[in-house]
Design a protein around this nucleic acid. Structure first.
Length: 439
DNA sequence: TCTGGGGTCCTAGGACCC
DNA sequence: TCTGGGGTCCTAGGACCC
């Protein structure tokens, strides 16, 4: 048996921790650039605001219902998430942190499973202040379904709940739940697959569980076949309590306003390159492959999207080299024809320092030089860690006006920074934002 | 006017090998 | 007229997740 812990309306719950006025009111949190709805309070759900909906489309609904709108603040959410996961890891031996607000954990050999889960849920509510739901089942897919049932309690009158914890205990309950789970709500079944399944008269989780497994395998591949097996209680997706090594690191943002000129896009890219390389160094990795991509909005009538990849002979950690390559790649894919909405960098093919294969021919870096590179990068990270991100940066990453000390008349629009109009303070991660308590 | 960001895994098909 | 069998590796694209 295993369990899935899921934080309720996580981003909204985090915001409410520090701003109790939000409790009881409809609240939504927006994606980056204030684009779409990505978290909703129950009140917001009940007035019909949908997940993923573009913000601009529902402004009227938001005004007339006095919905509180917030930009996303990931430094809060990440910090709160870490605290919750630490409590869980203390109470259970094998925990897989699956996302910022979810974790699977093993219950093998644990007696009185429901009791233990209720205890940890109460502890998290008391110590951190975030309400969570925990579903217990034989497989990850079934645990996911169980959690969905907890969130939709009112639709499942035949089931008894122990606070926000549920274990499916007998076959009757399981059958009842699966019959009342639409196929598109199963973990691993998205838009495309649900269309296919419905065409083949597979409408509920119960239908999928009982269908011909080989037909699924042949038509849609091994992943969906595993889902079928997991619905039958056969474990195919195991809990991985050690975090696997990253395979790629990507940094990209949509621009606050669309950009036309190369120099503006370049000044956004250099910031992302610095972020991506410092992320990579945090994981103590060297990369061999660098990809830059550039695109217009996909809603644009004249859409353009392109990317280019460069593979090094020897993996590197050096920001200066990575930037040089990224800059060249951007030049190659940029066309002076479009209004762009996004640029990004992907680093991949990682090596740790010990396993780097040196080039036979191109051995231009001596051991000493490699060490110097590493020291320099470490220094950048240390200084930025201490004095704030961006204190030390590449000299290409600067505003010419900053040095010329005057705004040039034809300075081109470089307002690429993302919109974040409704952002709350970083209550737990920035000195100046820590809430003050009146005595 | 305005539509997120960061990932993973699988598959089909092409190119190549002996 | 007639053109094998068995394999690997790489890439692009698709589908999914939160």
């Amino acid at each position: 048996m295993l369990a899935l812990l899921d934080c309720n309306n996580f981003y909204v719950s985090c915001e409410r921790l520090f701003n109790p006025k939000l409790i009881g009111r409809p609240v939504v949190v927006l994606s980056n650039n204030d684009g779409c709805i990505i978290s909703r309070s129950n009140e917001a759900k009940s007035i019909g605001i949908k997940m993923g909906e573009p913000f601009f489309k529902i402004k009227n609904n938001i005004l007339s219902n006095r919905v509180v709108v917030l930009s996303s603040n990931y430094s809060i959410y990440g910090d709160i998430s870490d605290r919750i996961m630490n409590i869980l890891k203390n109470d259970f031996p094998e925990v897989e942190v699956y996302s910022i607000d979810e974790a699977f954990f093993k219950l093998k050999g644990i007696k009185d499973r429901e009791r233990r889960c209720v205890d940890v849920a109460n502890k998290i509510l008391k110590w951190i202040g975030i309400p969570v739901s925990i579903g217990i089942a034989k497989t990850k897919t079934l645990a996911k379904i169980t959690n969905r049932v907890i969130k939709k309690k009112h639709e499942y009158r035949n089931i008894t709940f122990n606070n926000n914890v549920l274990e499916i205990k007998n076959d009757n309950d399981l059958e009842y739940i699966l019959k009342n789970t639409p196929v598109e709500d199963i973990w691993g079944v998205g838009k495309k697959l649900s269309v296919f399944l419905k065409k083949n008269t597979i409408n509920s989780a119960f239908d999928l569980k009982d269908c011909d497994e080989n037909f699924i395998r042949k038509k849609k591949g091994v992943i969906l076949q595993r889902t079928v097996l997991e619905l039958r209680g056969v474990e195919c997706n195991y809990i991985e309590s050690t975090r696997p090594v990253k395979k790629s690191i990507c940094v990209s943002r949509s621009f606050g306003t669309k950009l036309r000129y190369h120099e503006n896009i370049r000044s956004a890219l250099i910031v992302y390159v610095q972020k991506a390389t410092s992320k990579m160094r945090l994981n103590q990795l060297f990369c061999r492959t660098i990809t830059v991509f550039l695109k217009t909005s996909r809603y644009e009538s004249r859409a353009y999207s392109n990317s280019k990849t460069y593979t090094l002979i020897e993996p590197t950690i050096d920001l200066r080299l990575i930037w040089k390559i990224a800059d060249k790649l951007l030049k190659d894919i940029y066309k002076d024809l479009y209004l762009y909405s996004k640029v990004g960098i992907i680093l991949s093919e990682f090596y740790d320092e010990k396993s780097i294969q040196q080039s036979l021919i191109n051995n231009k870096l001596s051991q000493k030089e490699t060490n110097n590179e590493k020291k320099l990068m470490q220094l950048i990270d240390d200084i930025n860690g201490k004095f704030g991100y961006g204190k030390l940066k590449l000299s290409s990453d600067c505003d010419k006006d900053f040095f010329s000390n005057k705004k040039t008349r034809n300075s081109r629009n470089s307002n690429w920074k993302m919109k974040s109009k409704y952002c709350s303070p970083c209550y737990t991660t920035r000195w100046y934002d820590i809430p003050k308590v009146k005595v």
